[in-house]
């Protein structure tokens, strides 16, 4: 798609939007202003404030919250969150890519059915699905029952409330966000290009790595962003399936706003976290642009 020429500057689409255009954009601009710009601004202001005895935000300037963010405890937790999110992303790419590609290569009817199957879980509340995993993984749960009765194991596996359970939960939650963008890219890949690669003597590995991967890279990049970034901040899965034993940065931030009632510190963590997201995004964008050259 990068071969499509850019429209000339004289093209009618390049006109500056008139009043009518702005009017159409207004709801979106207003929405962004109210729910993105203003809250981010409040967060930024709070992060330099202090709290009083009751946990109310006091507007007196301090750097303390940021100093605390860079305490080894929180850096360590942030590092672990990134590691878990990274592992989740890698597994999601490994599992989700073939699925997305496979679905995209099916005939239209089957394709829509398969897509529907990917999306059906979204019809149930996320928390309920997480509780279902608890029923599956617990000591006397479905999985252990199955394995025990099949004779594959002699004692129940300790799965629930372990890091393994957290990764299972994260992969389960975010896999569709990898499959769908990959599908979106794979669907547009012209089969003739793959055939041409074969005709020119490329084996399956070379055709895959030099033709298919570059053509579906935008989908992979989008999927990585959609999986990696939210996975860092996830707190429900670590609480419910990890037994709240290993804190992630999402748990720490949530704690500051509820239990600890230290909003300024929570805000500082949030600001650092948001900046991290921005940098990840820029890095992926930059990488994407470079690889398109």
């Amino acid at each position: 798609m990068q071969t499509i020429g850019l429209p000339g500057t004289a093209a009618p689409h390049a006109r500056k939007p008139g009043l009518w255009g702005w009017l159409l954009l207004a709801p979106m601009v207003l929405w962004l202003l109210l729910f993105v710009v203003v809250p981010t601004g409040i967060l930024a202001v709070y992060s330099f404030c202090q709290r009083d005895d009751l946990g109310r935000v006091v507007f007196s300037f301090t750097w303390d919250n940021y100093v605390r963010v860079f305490d080894p405890i929180y850096l360590n937790i942030l590092g672990r969150s990134v590691a878990y999110a990274g592992l989740t992303t890698i597994i999601c790419v490994a599992v989700g890519y073939p699925v997305g590609w496979y679905i995209a290569r099916r005939p239209a009817g089957l394709r829509n059915l398969l897509l529907l199957l990917v999306m059906i879980p979204f019809w149930t509340s996320f928390l309920i699905r997480t509780y279902a995993w608890i029923a599956i993984l617990k000591n006397e749960g479905l999985l252990n029952g199955l394995l025990l009765s099949a004779g594959a194991i002699t004692a129940p596996l300790e799965l629930l409330y372990t890091p393994v359970a957290v990764v299972i939960g994260l992969v389960y939650a975010y896999l569709p966000f990898m499959i769908l963008p990959v599908y979106g890219s794979a669907e547009k890949v012209d089969n003739a290009l793959v055939e041409a690669a074969h005709d020119l003597g490329a084996g399956p590995v070379r055709a895959f790595s030099e033709v298919i991967i570059p053509l579906t890279l935008p989908g992979i990049a989008a999927g990585v962003l959609l999986v990696f970034v939210p996975a860092i901040g996830m707190f429900a899965i670590t609480d419910l399936m990890g037994g709240a034993r290993v804190p992630m940065i999402g748990n720490v931030i949530q704690n500051q706003f509820f239990k600890a009632r230290n909003w300024p510190f929570g805000a500082a963590l949030g600001v650092v976290f948001t900046l991290m997201f921005v940098f990840t995004y820029l890095a992926v964008q930059w990488h994407g642009r470079r690889s398109q050259r």
């Binding site: 005895d53 405890i73 360590n76 937790i77 720490v252 239990k259 009632r261 230290n262």
Partner: peptide, 20 residues
């Protein structure tokens, strides 16, 4: 206990972090 609650929060976060 007012602001000394922060001491508890920090201790527990730290201990969970190291024991995990």
């Amino acid at each position: 206990i007012g602001e000394s609650g922060a001491l508890i929060d920090e201790l527990v976060t730290d201990l969970k972090n190291t024991s995990g």
